[in-house]
Measured scan of single mutants.
Amino acid sequence: GVRVRALYDYDGQEQDELSFKAGDELTKLGEEDEQGWCRGRLDSGQLGLYPANYVEAI
């Protein structure tokens, strides 16, 4: 996976979405899909989806 850092807070709206705060680091686990979602893993171990444009590569 690729380490990325959140640029903005994001509150997951669905069960399969991650929630994070600006500045949090997570691991991107795949390329974004056509809707702009990426699969990732928080350092807590939680897996889920997040909007790709909310993070930057570290």
Rank of each mutant, 00 (worst) to 15 (best):
Ala57His: 12
Leu49Asp: 08
Asp9Leu: 01
Glu56Leu: 04
Arg3Ala: 03
Gln46Ala: 15
Gln15Ile: 13
Asn53Ala: 08
Asp43Gly: 10
Gly30Ala: 14
Lys28Val: 11
Gly30Asn: 07
Glu14Cys: 06
Ala6Met: 01
Tyr8Val: 10
Ile58Ser: 09
Gly12Asp: 02
Val2Thr: 10
Gly45Asn: 09
Leu47Gly: 12
Glu31Arg: 10
Asp9Ala: 11
Gly30Ile: 04
Arg3Glu: 01
Leu7Met: 13
Glu31Tyr: 06
Trp37Ile: 14
Glu56Lys: 08
Tyr10Pro: 03
Gly40Tyr: 00
Gln35Trp: 08
Val55Gly: 06
Val2Ile: 15
Tyr8His: 06
Ile58Asp: 03
Gln13Phe: 09
Gln35Asp: 11
Gln15Phe: 11
Asp24Thr: 12
Ala22Gly: 07
Glu34Gly: 15
Ser19Tyr: 05
Glu56Met: 09
Tyr10Glu: 02
Asp16Glu: 13
Asn53Glu: 03
Gly1Arg: 08
Glu25His: 11
Asp16Met: 07
Ala57Asp: 15
Gly30Phe: 08
Glu56Phe: 04
Glu32Gly: 12
Asp33Leu: 11
Gly45Gln: 04
Leu47Phe: 10
Glu31Pro: 15
Ala22Thr: 12
Lys21Glu: 08
Lys28Arg: 13
Gln15Ser: 10
Asp33Glu: 15
Tyr50Asn: 01
Gly45His: 01
Glu25Lys: 10
Ala52Pro: 05
Gly40Thr: 00
Gly1Cys: 10
Tyr10His: 15
Gly40Trp: 00
Cys38Asp: 04
Glu34Tyr: 15
Val4Lys: 03
Arg41Pro: 01
Glu56Trp: 03
Gly40Asp: 00
Leu29Phe: 11
Gln46Arg: 12
Val2Trp: 09
Arg39Asp: 04
Gln13Glu: 13
Leu49Trp: 08
Gln35Phe: 13
Gly23His: 04
Thr27Phe: 12
Asn53Pro: 13
Val4His: 04
Leu29Arg: 01
Gly23Lys: 05
Gly36Pro: 05
Glu32Leu: 08
Val2Tyr: 05
Glu31Ser: 10
Leu7Asn: 06
Lys28Pro: 06
Gly1Thr: 13
Gly48Arg: 01
Thr27Gln: 10
Gly48Pro: 01
Glu34Thr: 09
Asp11Phe: 06
Leu47Pro: 06
Gly40Lys: 00
Gln35Ala: 13
Leu49Ser: 11
Ala52Phe: 08
Pro51Lys: 14
Ser44Tyr: 03
